[in-house]
Amino acid sequence: MPIKVLFESENCTWIDVIAPSAKDLEELNVKFGINELLLQDTVESNHLPKYDEADGVKFFLARENVSTGRKNLNTISDVSTKLGIFISKKFLISVHRLPTSSIDNALLEVNKSYEIASSITPDRIALMIGLKILQTFDRENERILDIMDKLESNIFLGKGMKQDLIKSLYRIKRKAGLNLRILNISSDWVSNFNKLNLEHVEVMDLVDKQKDAIADYEHLGAQVTNLIGMFLALSDQRNNEAMKILSTFSIYFLPITFIAGLYGMNFNHMPELNYKYGYFICLGVMVLVVIITFIYLKRKKF
């Protein structure tokens, strides 16, 4: 994709590159003097967040949360995409493989501040982008919480326990764990914002935003774990109730089956078989056993 200028003023030029080709990377290297190895980091799919500096250019490699809809959630690439930010005194270059909401939202904020263009510097744009990146994790956290509320209602108020629920909970747990990992390893680029020409309060606002996001995902992970535990406990309880019903029927029919089996034996001498009222007496005994069993179970509140 062609190199695109998003914002330009006397103090700052913001250049954005989406899905750079080898030719684009070479042009960035030649025109802006950006280290070749740092440019390669922006196209490596599973590269971790980092901060580096070379030839007077500061490099922040962050990861932004994205909803990819992938079935497998094994690596951080399944829930996020890279965003590289190169900063010098006069320019900022953002490089990313996919369109990102953080770039779009930061650009809107820059355009709103166009009247005070003199205050817009590469460092300040980088701070805007950094805050927007962390906000993507906040939005994902809110979306997952909404899904969890629906799943919780289905678990406690729904009819029957569907196996799809446990699959959904497991996916949420995997997603929360991967996002938490990204946020933890993002400390490298977040903490190095103090090397930019920004006020200490502004940098601490970014650091606090990261800490809040980490705390939210830790709490989310604990909630999912508890909900999975409740789901399994309720499943066991319902299975136990079913076994209780079967056991109750067994208690009633076991003595009756014993009597039927006793008189079903093929012996030649069984006096009761020839007795005129033997059949009715046998039925009466069976009914009496059922009544006694019922009264016993009723008193035991079984």
Rank of each mutant, 00 (worst) to 15 (best):
L246D: 11
N266Q: 05
P255A: 11
A260I: 09
I256R: 03
I259H: 10
I259C: 08
M265W: 08
F249E: 13
N268K: 12
Y252H: 01
H269D: 12
Y263V: 00
T257G: 15
I245C: 07
I256K: 02
S247R: 15
L254N: 08
F249D: 11
L254G: 10
A260N: 04
N268C: 04
P271W: 02
E241D: 07
N268H: 14
L254Q: 05
L246G: 14
A242M: 14
E241Q: 03
P271A: 04
E272R: 02
A242T: 13
I251H: 09
M270R: 01
M243R: 06
N268F: 12
H269Y: 14
E272S: 01
N266S: 10
G264E: 09
F253L: 02
I251L: 14
L273T: 01
I245S: 12
S247M: 15
G261T: 06
Y252V: 02
Y263K: 00
L273W: 01
A242W: 02
F258Y: 11
E272V: 04
K244H: 11
M243I: 15
I245K: 13
F249R: 13
L254S: 09
N268G: 10
I256Y: 02
A260D: 03
A260P: 06
F267C: 11
I251W: 07
K244T: 10
S247L: 13
G261N: 05
I259A: 08
L262C: 08
L246E: 12
G261S: 06
T248M: 15
I245Q: 12
F253S: 00
M243Y: 08
K244P: 04
M270D: 06
K244N: 11
I251V: 14
P255C: 08
A260K: 05
P271G: 07
H269K: 09
I251R: 11
G264H: 05
F267T: 05
G264M: 04
M265A: 14
F258C: 07
A260Y: 07
M265G: 07
N266P: 07
Y263S: 02
M243H: 08
S250E: 11
T257K: 02
K244D: 09
G264N: 06
T248G: 11
I251E: 09
F253K: 00
E272Y: 00
M270C: 04
S247W: 15
Y252C: 00
N266I: 04
G261E: 06
I251S: 10
E241C: 00
G264D: 09
L262W: 11
H269S: 10
G261R: 06
P271Y: 02
L273H: 02
I259K: 06
I256L: 13
I245H: 13
F258G: 06
A242C: 02
G264K: 10
S250I: 10
M243L: 15
S247F: 12
P271N: 02
L246M: 15
M265V: 13
E241N: 01
A260W: 10
G261D: 04
Y252P: 02
L262T: 03
A260H: 04
N266G: 12
S250T: 15
L273K: 02
